[in-house]
Write a protein that binds this DNA or RNA. Sequence first.
DNA 1: ACCGGTATTGCACACGTTTGCAATCCTGAT
DNA 2: ATCAGGATTGCAAACGTGTGCAATACCGGT
Lengths: 350, 350
Amino acid sequence: MVSIKDIARAAQVSHSTVSRALRNSPLVNIETRALIHKLAGEAGYTVSAVGRSLVTKRTSTIGVVVTTIADPFAGEVVSGIEEFALSHDYSVILAACHADPDRELRAVHSLQERRVDGILVMASRIGALYLPRLSGMKVPIVLINSHHPGEFVYSIRIDNVDGARLATKHLVDLGHRRIAYIGDRFGFQSDMERLTGYREMLEETNPGFEADLGFEPDLVAYGDGTPEGGRQAMLQLLSRAARPTAVFCYNDRMAIGAMRAVREQGLRVPRDVSIAGFDDLFLSSYTDPPLTTVRQPKRDMGVQAGEILLQLLAGEKPESRVTSGVLVVRESTGPPRSAASLRSAIRSHG
Amino acid sequence: MVSIKDIARAAQVSHSTVSRALRNSPLVNIETRALIHKLAGEAGYTVSAVGRSLVTKRTSTIGVVVTTIADPFAGEVVSGIEEFALSHDYSVILAACHADPDRELRAVHSLQERRVDGILVMASRIGALYLPRLSGMKVPIVLINSHHPGEFVYSIRIDNVDGARLATKHLVDLGHRRIAYIGDRFGFQSDMERLTGYREMLEETNPGFEADLGFEPDLVAYGDGTPEGGRQAMLQLLSRAARPTAVFCYNDRMAIGAMRAVREQGLRVPRDVSIAGFDDLFLSSYTDPPLTTVRQPKRDMGVQAGEILLQLLAGEKPESRVTSGVLVVRESTGPPRSAASLRSAIRSHG
DNA sequence: ACCGGTATTGCACACGTTTGCAATCCTGAT
DNA sequence: ATCAGGATTGCAAACGTGTGCAATACCGGT
């Protein structure tokens, strides 16, 4: 592998001069600089980041911790991170922890050894095991929609309460009285917040707890975040005495499973049950019917996380940021049928 | 940042001994080794990969070039890569090229500077610009389902011809006579191969080119790989005089768009038109109806790509590998209606 | 001729680690 | 007592790069 010294020999100068020339330092004569660039080009020389890092004590590298990159949500956020990184001459080192304590430890340890300049964490669950290791590292850490905002100072997250209110209000405005929530049973902070927004909106709309509107524990079911989990939760809701006419789901994946459950019961979306999700995944606009959901600015959140990290690296004290979701109304939500027609529809199917 | 020398000072030994002790070399006394481990633990020492890389000339790092990590297919493959990497003490550096020549160049250049030990490329289109740069690098490169197998020796890919035959045969066996293909207009090698498999199967089934079965250029349409592209292509096919009763799509994303187009025309899947895809994305089993498709072993392909790379790094000469897709029959395909009933269905809608 | 100043270059060290080689110490056998 | 040999340790070089400082050369002004 050709190094700076080989170029120096070829150009009959010291390696210091080569180093300076390649970084376009004004300290070096314009002609020698040109010569060195020419020789370096011919020799196919590329500066070694490892040599450089050793002296500069910076690797221009950021670690991204993610539960799994196969999650389409994570993919889009990381895509934003990567875009930001590339445009600022940083590289992204991926570390998937798979919610597995052993892998978490190994992944973070590896980032530590590689001396990343900073870390972005998007794992919804930050394991108790590697949390101390993370905070023990001397590098800045920015959390993205994560669970432990208290432990770490800097984060970017979506306003879950507001987003949930948006979705719930939409369902209320359509005329629904019995609106259910399918949450994530792992009890992430984000789930708590979305539940809060859902609950707030219901209670505000109906301060006196009139019949058929207001928060009812019976109208909350839990899945595991996957379509199958959403399906199971929806089946539960449908089997209860007073079924909901609309459901707000913690995320799009469960909403998709919920739609399937509705179909399996011979009912139709949104005619019999309206369904709204959260996230707006790439494929959510291609479900049948297309899914009403709260869009998270995923790429942008990745970019903003990068910006916060950069400020941190520059020694500034950035504010944590909160972005807002926007309600995307598609065709999975609509006005409720009257109770009578719903009953007859069920009878004709059963 | 605490270095090996700090530990050496604390342990009253030379830094060489510390280095050896930490790597559990038998050359160092068992007690001093224990002492050093203890001190290192207390000091929160982690070896610096950059210092090490400088002398070992290996970074234990592999670069992954991908069009965009937001693509769910890429996400799953990268997930497999990451898993493999972690279990072999490698780290993954992500480089997204976004099919943009400028970014391609910058991304690959960055991998070069970082001295990755090897590169995995999964961009369906390898830009002419950075191709030479790639091959100019002295590191082993493994292609995943990529376009230029000729340029690079090592690759892992799916047997597209076979997979397409599987899907097409399934449709033929169901009784379809007019089977269309929606391809990718960018003309990737994989598209050519899937078209070939589709065509082969049709011609084998009907060597004499009888009416309504066999390859017909009229039954091929092209999209851009996205759902919207698939939708457009499907609309084209539906507007032709003799419509297909079944469609095999280049990928699941276009198949999803095609299903939407069918619905938009007031037709039903699979009653009026059967649709099959390719890839088996995570969400493909949750479309309505669930999509029949050819599953690619995505994670496994990532793992296998890693294995090939590792063999290369060990100086071996691995074989390129070809994996097989498996047909996953779901509910988007079924026997065709008779031509008569199809016509009446269309009349009643139009 | 001398001086101050600027432009250009090289020297030498530093960064953190690995490793070949030499040095030292100790043990047991002769 | 001597020696062979093993166990343990340190020395020193090397990896590729950046940079403070000194050195040199040159220029213009007096």
